[in-house]
Structures are given as C-alpha cells and as structure tokens.
Nucleic acid binder design. Structure first.
Length: 277
DNA sequence: ACGAGCGCCTGTCGGC
DNA sequence: TGCCGACAGGCGCTCG
C-alpha cells in the first residue's frame, strides 16, 4: 500500500493543494455506491447509504496510513492497503473496472476509491477512535522523542524491521520506508530492538522522519503498475535495489525475507549487534 | 511476547 | 504464444 507519504500526498491533492486539482472541502454528498461489499467494514450497506447522504465534507485528515474524511456528523475512514487510490472526477465519466466505492457530490463531481486488489477498507463512524485506537505514535509528533523512542524499543524484544512495520509501535511506516530508514540509520533489519543503544535509537528516529519527509516532498513513490505521480522511487537507497551497489560502500544490496516481506539492506553498512551480521 | 504461515485479491513480469 | 510461479506499497488471524 501506499505508506504515510503516499497517503499524505493524496490527502493534499483532495484538498486542492496540488495545481489543477479541485478541493472536495465543502461539497455535500448526494449519493454513494459500494461496488465491492467487503470494501465496507462498518456500518452495514443499508445504513451506510442512509447515513452518509446529506453530509458535507468539512476537512480531510490523516492518521498513520488512514485517510480521515471529516463529515458533518461522522468520519469516513479509508485505508488504501496495497493497491488503493483516491481521486476526484466528473460524474459523466464511465465507471472503471476497479472502482470499489464512489461518492457523488452536489456539484457534479465524485470521489472515486479505486482498488485493484480489493484489500482496501472503509469505515463510517461517529468516533474515529473505534478504528484508530490501537495505533502507535504519529512519526512527526513532537511528543515522540529520542528518549521515549529508545525506551519503547528496549521494552520489546522484536526484530527491528517487523517492529517498524507494526502500526501499534509507530504509525505509517510500511515496507519501503522501513527498509530505507534502517539503511539510513545503518541498522540491520534483524537486529533485536531490546539491544539497541541510545545512539542507535536516536539515529533510527531521525532516519524514519527523514525518509518520510523526503517521501512527502517527492509526492510519494510510484512503483509497479500503480502510478501515483510521485518520484521517490528514483531515490531509493536499498528498496528493490537487490544486487546493485550500495551508494555508500559499493557492496551489492542484499535481499532477504522477513515476516514474508522482501527486505533489502547493505550487508556491509548495516551490521547487527546480535550476531546476525 | 514473539515469529511464521496463511488468507484475502488482481496484476505484472521473467523463465521455459 | 501460452503457462506458471514469484512477487507486489497491508493487515488480521491462528498456531506454536
């Protein structure tokens, strides 16, 4: 899926912050269609339609990888998972093959939730905490600092890569940015969190923030057939660079599988202190 | 408290 | 050309 930078890019586009893109803020929903039933988590199909029609888009927020469309009475929460995308277009256009939800607005435009793999989910709730309650800290929250990040790492005994991708540990980091953050911090993906030093923790937090920030500035990464317009994929340090030379030392980038996910790292620059490298 | 495996889905790509 | 497995930006579940 899109990770935090891609979700943030889409959020800004839906608010009209990208040149030529119309904002949906202030528009009123006068029709809603779900094309794939499992896309809707809660409430029921019947209640969803009855409840959402007539509500106005007040603002769009984000929490981790979740898009939060704040309406008059409820919040429409959308998770894009692996292949989801959101955009605005005219109601006169024909429907695409992978449209899973469409919201029609009173000005003749519509919001499209497109999702080839059907993993995406939407929730319509009065209290967003019902869905977001278990999420860990937002990466850019100033309340997250070197000290409590260090303590949070030490309090668990997890491999760093799966831990970074655990949304209850920190929200918004996925497979690409976990690999990139560990590379930047010079930490091995299998190193145990219980054994990091204060310096390791400080570098890792700084690295997470730096790669997410760069991802946002480059409007996210666009890979495979899911094109979203960003160009961060041209600046990857390790992700999908298997066999290519490390920018720092020239060693071929290695690929291993961790938690069923492709994991890329430099065997020379990223040494673990737990015997894994 | 962990990690591993699997299910959910469709599409693309490389090898034969 | 066609088929077939590997792989893909995520996450919830079960099982040791």
């Amino acid at each position: 899926m899109p990770e935090l930078p891609e979700v943030e890019t889409i959020r800004r586009t839906l608010l009209g912050e990208k040149a030529g893109a119309p904002s949906i803020r202030g528009l009123t929903i006068n029709g809603a269609i779900i094309f794939w039933e499992r896309t809707l988590d809660i409430p029921s199909l019947e209640e969803f339609g009855l409840r959402i029609v007539g509500q106005q888009v007040k603002d769009i927020g984000r929490r981790g990888k979740y898009m939060l469309v704040r309406l008059t009475d409820d919040t429409l929460i959308i998770h894009l998972r692996m292949s989801g995308d959101l955009w605005v277009e005219g109601q006169d256009l024909s429907l695409g093959q992978h449209y899973r939800m469409v919201l029609n607005f009173d000005n003749g435009s519509r919001l499209v939730f497109n999702d080839a793999r059907k993993f995406g989910r939407v929730w319509l709730v009065s209290d967003p905490e019902q869905v977001l309650g278990k999420l860990g800290p937002e990466p850019f929250d100033p309340a997250l600092n070197e000290q409590n990040f260090y303590e949070s790492l030490r309090s668990r005994r997890r491999q760093l890569k799966p831990l970074l991708m655990d949304q209850t540990f920190i929200a918004g980091v996925g497979n690409i940015y976990a690999d990139e953050a560990l590379y930047r911090a010079r930490l091995h993906p299998l190193q145990l969190s219980s054994r990091v030093t204060q310096g390791d923790a400080a570098r890792l937090l700084e690295s997470i923030r730096a790669v997410l920030q760069e991802g946002i500035e480059r409007h996210g990464a666009s890979i495979d057939w899911i094109y979203r317009g960003g160009d961060f994929q041209n600046y990857f340090g390790v992700y999908r660079r298997t066999g290519e030379p490390c920018w720092n030392c020239g060693t071929p980038i290695a690929r291993i599988t961790v938690g069923q996910r492709g994991t890329h790292f430099c065997p020379t620059c990223q040494k673990g202190n737990d015997g894994t490298a």
